[in-house]
Amino acid sequence: MYICNRNYNMTLMQKRTTRHKTAPLLALMLGLVLVCPTQRMKAQEHKMSFDIFSGLNFGFRDISYDRQYDLYIALTPGFKWHFGDHWQVAGQMIVDIVDQFDNPYYNPYYNRQRNIFHFRMLDISKELRLGMLYAKASAGFFTESRYGVDLKLFLPLTSWFALEAQGGLTGLFSTSGGWGFSPMQRFAGTIGGDIYLSRSNTQLRGVIGSYLYRDLGFEVEAIRHFRHSSVSLYANWNNKDDFDGGFRVVVALPPYHRKQRMVNVRPAATFNMPYSIMMHEWTNRMYHTDPEENMRDGWFSRDLLEWGSHTMQPDFIITPKE
């Protein structure tokens, strides 16, 4: 099995990177302009809180002839600051513990001085409802070493059928050897639909899109949601690498009963394990705008969007602590 780690690839990507120091500020400003006028602050339905969390990235791969496995273990500390009305600032970094992926066979920069701390993301997001339409706007630094703005839309037409779309204008950033940015010129987006069968908690999802690395393709996925976990089978195609497929597993991590305080220190919400047959790393990919984004919870908060897996019993019973 292989859970890809693409941090070390940032060094390779840096060669293609030009430096635009003001670009991230522009991205943040553009994002705020995009989301601020849409709604004025209402009552604090989504209360203020500050969550500090960490999960574990665990990867192993079996592609080296004279090694049993290559291991990759890293901590993923992050934070989420909810400051009311579905506004959120989130950030995350990666701390390498064991990184055998970075070996001389596959990385020419093996002997360089490596930094075990990697910046992963830092962005501001706003979720809102406009009639039947749900939207989430984000701006800042995303995963996949992208920065820019992103907009996600979700339109539930019935209790079992919904349309979804995601689009973003981003550039590449690199933190290897100082900050570097490419122009924020690349558009990537997907559009598709979701069917949710509530009786069996099964979700069928299909999207087509122009993906992050300029490939055109589609993906279909069948997800079975269980009590505290979800398992999916997926298949995708793109015009660069052809077909791929595999499975994904998401497990909500205990404890499932939690106290909600102003500041919360907790484990990561979920453990995610993707498996790919063909191991295409650079196709059918989009960035994430939330450090805990996963197929089980989707893009939106449970208290805003009651559709799909959000109609199931929640994973976490959270009681406010006065």
């Binding site: 004279d66 079975r224 089978l233 499975f247 498996y275």
Partner: peptide, 30 residues
Amino acid sequence: SITPYSWIELSYICTKRMDLVNGEPKYRRK
């Protein structure tokens, strides 16, 4: 392995295979 519904089971299996590594037979392939 997993049984997502009562009527279907799925499983993913790795069976180790032996190969010569530095003159020694070891379970290096699968």
